Simulated scan of single mutants.
Amino acid sequence: MRTVRQLLEAKPAEIIAIGPDAPVYDAIRLMAERSIGALLVMEGPRLVGILSERDYARKIVLQGRASRETPVRDIMTAQVRTVAPGDSTEHCMQLVTDSRIRHLPVLEGDKVLGVLSIGDLVKAVIEMQRQDIDQLQRYIAS
């Protein structure tokens, strides 16, 4: 089973974030430009929340709020589920499934190292399954 650290090593090291006082419009524009579904909300180096497309749909669109006037802090998810570099892929999959979330910030202490998406986790599981299948096929063939 691969660890979170191993998954992060396969990704670009860039952390894409926005400040809590920025307008929601800027956050959504940044997500669109970067083709991502969530942004970390940070005050300096400190993680204070996460903003997802789901937050936008439920707290701006459905409530009739204006994204240009609403600050990110008003709609972000403040209680963020996080993982550590030593956690397993299996633990992360369980966490996203149980919590019904799609993004997991990775923290080492208070330092943000990156973000894993459900896509990153599914890709890792598929790779592990392929390796298991290859090993079984070699065993059967020998």
Rank of each mutant, 00 (worst) to 15 (best):
R138T: 15
P20S: 13
Y25L: 13
V122Y: 08
E14H: 10
A13S: 14
T70C: 07
Y56G: 04
E127C: 00
V115K: 01
I126N: 11
D26P: 01
A38I: 02
V61A: 02
T77W: 01
Q129I: 15
M31P: 13
R138P: 13
E43I: 06
L7F: 02
S142F: 13
V72P: 00
V122F: 09
R68G: 05
L8G: 07
V125M: 15
M76K: 05
E69D: 15
R81H: 12
T97A: 12
V83I: 12
V80I: 02
V96E: 03
I101L: 07
H103F: 07
L116K: 01
R54S: 07
Q137I: 12
E9C: 06
L47T: 08
I140P: 13
A10W: 02
I16F: 01
L47Q: 11
D132P: 09
R54T: 02
I60F: 03
E108R: 14
T97R: 14
D134M: 13
R138Y: 12
A57L: 15
S67H: 10
I60K: 04
G114R: 07
S35C: 07
M128P: 05
Y56F: 12
A141C: 05
Q131H: 09
Q94L: 15
V112K: 03
V41R: 00
G49A: 04
V41C: 05
I126R: 15
V41M: 05
A57V: 06
D110Q: 09
I50M: 11
S99V: 08
P23L: 12
G19Y: 02
R100C: 02
D134I: 12
R2N: 10
G44A: 11
T82V: 15
I36C: 02
L40R: 08
L30V: 12
A27G: 06
V122P: 01
D87E: 12
S117F: 04
D21K: 11
L62Y: 03
G114K: 06
V41P: 00
L136G: 09
K11F: 01
A13T: 14
I101K: 07
L40G: 04
E14K: 15
V41Y: 01
G49S: 03
I18Y: 02
P20L: 11
R2E: 12
G119I: 09
G37R: 07
L136V: 13
R5T: 09
E127G: 00
L7Q: 05
S35W: 05
P20I: 10
E90K: 15
V61D: 03
I126A: 14
P85Q: 05
S88H: 11
V96C: 03
D21S: 10
A38F: 02
R29A: 07
E53K: 04
Q6A: 11
V24T: 03
G44N: 09
T97I: 01
S52Y: 04
V125E: 14
I15W: 02
D98G: 08
R34P: 00
Q63H: 06
G49C: 04
E127I: 01
E33N: 14
L95A: 14
P71E: 11
K123A: 10
D74P: 00
D110V: 13
D21P: 10
V125T: 14
D26T: 08
K59W: 07
G109H: 04
R130V: 02
I15F: 01
G44P: 05
R102Q: 08
T3R: 09
G86R: 05
P71A: 13
M76I: 13
A66R: 13
K111D: 10
